[in-house]
Design a protein around this nucleic acid. Structure first.
Length: 762
DNA sequence: GACCTGCTGCGGTATG
């Protein structure tokens, strides 16, 4: 059979035949042999009309799966200039630039205009698009917000002919402030154009439960969304977990360490960021050098430490460097250099990265993925794994490197349980079982609702409170906010201190003095909070940014952008730090906000400790560490109890996720225990096990509290961007709903009691 | 025990 005949056969699918002539011609020109699985499924679904979620792994052709049928639908209107036809929303400017390149020829062939629209696009290009609105717009949520706020009067004209909205990386929006804003904006567009429903197409990574993505695409009506899932066309997975101890110790020396005489041990301090076991350093160098990889180091500080270490190992061995840091505080130009080298340069390259390289930016194919420690979610483990194994016949390869504290006499039970290793195994097991974290249940999102009220007032010029509530909360995404709470929020916004809004004599909400001020600044459009930062500059080149809250002194040294520097000048007014190269350097310091591990993962950890399953993907050192963990678990009798005496105090293991652990800790603090949460356990100082059991039994047997008292104990810093405008009462309400789970408290306490009877603990 | 993302309209000056 000739090549052409072969292609004719495989392209003669019914899906292909339903596409418009220019779209089919474009596919021929690309010399595609056939449509990908996800495209064949998505085409009929999108041509039928209605909302669709398209889910498949990175690089499975989701973009074309959406645009081939959408352009077919658009064929008869092509060329008209009385409104945009398709709105594509992306969380990243870089992705808009990638997609513009991908769609250019397709749109040209179909006679459809294609507009890029984000902060780096010239005002001129935006004005031209606005004057004769037509075709496709690729835009960010923030630019879309700006368009609605600044050109409120033109919204109806620009979008009245809108056929569909495409949301890329839908999963990245779910459960976030930014996602709430996007849902609200799309709803505002539908209302402004008097359209009941404009079709939405969501492009998403595969989630454990796709109904959540459907609900995120069309809040309240998720059941009406068609979900299209692409078959995984991957080549299998190679997984390994490798164990390491800090230098001077070896795993497997358990007998010498169960001696409980002497003072009770404290858990090992978290490792100094700069401490990398020498065996781990040597293995990373040996396993990664000579090919292209991604090394996820866990934090920006660790990215710098590992990149600096591996670069100096290249130097010492007289090899050219092939390890480069990549994180959010590095200058865009430096990050793009690393991305371009991965994508286009034949030289082997390892990017040492944070989550910056998890999203869909085009970096081509890498051989292996490496990760330091268990990480924080199964979802991100899955995203990372999808970055390798895309070449024919090559499996995805992932190695997790786990560091455990050294063996010492009378180790703390927490250390003896090797929880980082156990968590790594638990996460891999969750991944293998096809589970990953669902997004958090919707919170109140009062910060973003406050923002949307201000934006809506500016967009419309004035609106009645009832209409605003119906639009934003009843029809829009802020479903958890009833009329009473909305009225309280409005009152809070109108106080003399806030002055965000005022009410006209006719009862319309109007913009207040502070409202005017904050909407004048371009900083208004984004709903997520950001830290203020210095720029770090060497020889007129910006290396990146550094938080104002971790100031450095003149003369201090720092590892940054994969090199070592000394601060020579600081300009606080201009917020600039000048640096020069030097030989010494300490790791940089960024402020993390804390991670939350899901209940399901912690339950899986306990299952790993209880079972005697041998996991084939453990290296010998990791096997020994798991043996230690299981022996310790038995030794501490944690198979039969969850409360153990330790020194002068008590340890409680409820085996629940971070949020519930935090809630139980608060409840114990409220009962005057000196409680603090520690890894996956709660430590209570200077108390007896029997007293703790009594308290837990009482909590387990009492009705769930409303959480106000517990929330009042917790610090309530303004976390979300507009929290500073909320009253104490509203802030406490947000804390109750979004940060603790009081309704589960009796169950958590019962869990912590396990199968104890009062006689078991002495 | 963490990470990431985004930005208008104007006035100034330089360049063709």
């Amino acid at each position: 059979m000739t090549l052409k005949a072969e292609r004719t056969t495989s392209l003669q699918s019914s899906a292909f035949d339903t596409l418009s002539e220019p779209v089919r011609r474009w596919i021929w020109q690309r010399k595609w042999r056939s449509l990908r699985d996800v495209q064949k499924k998505a085409i009929p679904a999108i041509l039928a009309g209605g909302d669709v979620v398209i889910s498949a792994r990175t690089a499975a052709g989701k973009t074309e799966a959406a645009f081939l049928p959408l352009l077919t639908r658009h064929a008869e209107h092509a060329g008209s200039a009385d409104g945009f036809a398709i709105l594509y929303v992306s969380p990243l400017k870089a992705l808009i630039n990638d997609q513009h390149r991908r769609l250019e020829s397709l749109c040209e062939g179909s006679g459809v205009l294609l507009h890029k629209w984000h902060g780096d696009v010239s005002a001129d290009a935006k004005i031209r698009a606005r004057k004769r609105p037509s075709g496709i717009v690729l835009i960010t949520p923030e630019s879309l917000e700006a368009l609605l706020v600044r050109r409120g009067g033109e919204v109806a004209r620009m979008f009245s002919r809108l056929d569909a909205v495409v949301i890329d990386e839908l999963h990245a929006f779910i459960g976030t402030e930014r996602g709430m804003q996007l849902q609200s904006i799309l709803n505002r567009i539908e209302v402004a154009t008097a359209r009941d429903r404009i079709d939405r197409i969501g492009l998403s990574a595969t989630l454990g439960d796709m109904s959540l993505a459907a609900e995120a695409l069309r809040p309240g009506k998720g059941a009406s969304v068609t979900v299209v899932e692409g078959k995984d066309e991957g080549n299998g997975v190679r997984l390994q977990i490798r164990g390491y101890l800090l230098d001077g110790t070896a795993p497997g020396d358990l007998t010498a360490t169960t001696d409980d005489s002497g003072p009770p041990a404290k858990p090992a301090e978290p490792f100094e960021q700069s401490t990398v076991p020498s065996a781990l350093a040597a293995d990373l160098f040996r396993l990664l050098r000579g090919q292209s990889n991604l090394l996820f180091a866990g934090s920006r500080a660790n990215v710098e430490v590992y990149a600096d270490m591996l670069r100096s190992m290249c130097d010492q061995a007289s090899f050219p460097n092939e390890f480069f840091p990549h994180h959010g505080n590095l200058a865009r130009a430096m990050r793009e250099e690393v991305e371009a080298r991965l994508r286009d340069d034949p030289r082997p390259t390892t990017a040492v990265a944070t989550t910056t390289l998890e999203l869909g930016i085009d970096i081509g194919e890498v051989e292996t993925i490496a990760q330091i420690g268990p990480g924080f979610s199964v979802a991100s483990l899955r995203q990372r794994l999808g970055r390798s194994g895309r070449r024919a016949g090559k499996p995805a390869t992932l190695r997790i490197f786990v560091i455990e504290p050294p063996i010492g006499k009378g180790r703390h039970p927490i250390d003896r349980l090797r929880l980082d290793l156990v968590q790594s195994i638990a996460m891999v097991e969750c991944l293998r079982a096809g589970w990953c974290e669902p997004p958090l249940p919707a919170g109140l999102h009062l910060s973003t609702l406050l923002h949307q009220v201000v934006a809506l007032i500016v967009q419309t010029g004035g609106i009645s409170p009832t209409v605003a509530w119906k639009l934003l909360c009843e029809r829009g995404p802020f479903r958890a906010v009833d009329k009473t709470l909305f009225a309280e929020l409005l009152r809070c916004m109108a106080t003399p201190e806030n002055q965000l809004l005022e009410q006209s004599p006719e009862g319309l909400l109007m913009i207040g003095e502070t409202g005017e001020k904050i909407t004048e600044s371009y900083e208004f459009y984004a709903v997520f909070a950001t830290e203020r930062e210095y720029r770090i500059i060497h020889d007129a080149r910006t290396l990146g940014t550094y938080p104002l809250s971790s100031p450095l002194a003149r003369g201090e040294t720092i590892i940054f952008a994969g090199r070592r520097w000394q601060v020579i000048e600081i300009d606080d007014r201009a917020r600039v730090m000048m640096v020069k190269p030097t030989r010494a350097g300490k790791p940089p310091h960024f402020n993390g906000k804390g991670a939350a591990i899901h209940d399901h993962v912690v339950a899986a950890m306990r299952a790993v400790l209880v079972s005697d399953e041998a996991y084939p993907y453990l290296d010998p050192a990791a096997k020994l560490l798991l043996d230690e963990a299981r022996s310790s678990h038995l030794d501490l009798q944690l198979d039969r109890r969850s409360i153990i005496a330790h020194g002068e105090g008590v340890l409680v293991f409820p085996w629940v996720g971070t949020r519930k652990l935090q809630t139980l800790t608060l409840a114990l603090l409220a009962r005057e225990f000196k409680a603090s949460h520690l890894g996956h356990a709660i430590e209570l100082q200077e108390c007896e096990a029997a007293k703790v059991m009594e308290a837990l039994q009482d909590i387990a047997g009492s009705p769930a509290p409303d959480g106000q008292e517990l929330a009042a104990r917790l610090a309530q810093p303004a976390l979300a961007k507009f929290d500073t405008f909320l009253s104490d009462q509203l802030m406490t309400l947000v804390t109750m709903v979004e940060r603790i789970s009081a309704k589960d408290l009796p169950l958590i306490a019962a869990n912590a009691l396990g199968n104890h009877t009062t006689h078991e603990v002495t």
